[in-house]
């Protein structure tokens, strides 16, 4: 029973990682850049939800929608100001700019909200299910998180496969120059990608802080790094890869915490990542691109 509980907790944490990893993997697939500031957008989203629910007394759903709207706009503004001018510059320059944006968001939050952790009230007011006479408990947080993650995945995969903007995204990620020749507005497509990724970040922030309620300006950075790891783990650029990578990472982390050592859990997660990448250098679902002379 203990094992099952850990497994479900792992799936729940993994679902959060998967939603965050989506933001990384889509932006990487389309703009070919590592958006290091993504983790901090999560933190901003969580703070917005916190302000709406705890300070303004709004219902959870409304506050999440507001946070999603704000984060979407924030993501697009960041893209326009900081990343779009560097579209043709080297990847490393964009990476450092993204780091600058990450510092900016963290310190902005530090100024506005202060460094003391605030206690986040869960957006899911449901006790959850109880099986086998209370031996196996599935919290509402865990269950809803997993369901939300799966719904997002299905909707997003449908969106990318079947809609015009989704097809444009795939085209840009495959060959940007050819996409331009086909009349696709690359700038708008990249903007849309940032908008979707940042909107999802707000949901991820709310779900993450529902399970781990201590919220500080630095809350987003470690889950951000881990979700990025998850994206690479599953094969960066692939949406199902983000799901698999995120879930595996969450399960490994929780099981390592439970059975081996809570302090070494992160080290174990990263060690598994290294082993996977050495066996399959482009991640679990990544495509192998042949090198041509």
């Amino acid at each position: 029973m203990g094992f099952l509980t850990y497994l479900i907790n792992g799936l729940s944490l993994g679902s959060v990682y998967a939603i965050i990893a989506l933001g990384y993997t889509m932006v990487y697939g389309i703009a070919k850049m590592l958006n290091f500031a993504h983790g901090d957008v999560i933190m901003i989203g969580a703070y917005l939800v916190f302000m709406c629910t705890s300070n303004a007394g709004m219902p959870a759903i409304v506050s999440i929608v507001i946070a999603m709207g704000c984060c979407t706009i924030l993501g697009m503004i960041i893209e326009k100001i900081a990343y779009a001018p560097l579209r043709k510059a080297t990847n490393l320059a964009v990476l450092i700019t993204a780091i600058g944006v990450s510092y900016f968001l963290q310190n902005m939050a530090l100024l506005i909200f202060g460094s003391n952790p605030v206690s986040f009230t869960s957006v899911i007011p449901w006790e959850g299910l109880s099986f086998a006479g209370g031996q196996l408990k599935i919290t509402g947080n865990a269950l809803i998180t997993i369901v939300v993650c799966l719904v997002i995945m299905v909707v997003l995969m449908w969106f990318v496969k079947n809609t015009k903007p989704g097809q444009a995204m795939r085209a840009v990620s495959e060959d940007r120059d050819a996409a331009v020749l086909m009349g696709i507005n690359v700038n708008a497509t990249i903007s849309l990608t940032f908008a979707i990724g940042s909107g999802l970040a707000a949901i991820a922030g709310a779900l993450l802080c529902s399970s781990y309620p201590s919220l500080t300006p630095y809350t987003g950075s470690m889950p951000g790094i881990k979700a990025f790891t998850a994206a690479v783990f599953g094969g960066i650029g692939s949406i199902p890869g983000a799901l698999i990578g995120g879930l595996l990472l969450g399960i490994i982390e929780i099981l390592a915490k439970a059975y081996i050592s809570s302090q070494l859990a992160d080290a174990i997660v990263f060690a598994v990542l290294i082993i996977v990448l050495l066996v399959k250098p482009t991640g679990i679902l990544g495509k192998q691109i042949k090198e041509k002379v």
Partner: peptide, 24 residues
């Protein structure tokens, strides 16, 4: 005081744009 890291990050972003953005 509190504004220093904020200014630091803005300086960092501006420097990167100034040095690398093709338009600039």
């Amino acid at each position: 005081s509190n504004y220093r890291m904020l200014i630091y990050s803005v300086v960092l972003i501006m420097l990167m744009l100034f040095n690398w953005a093709p338009g600039i």
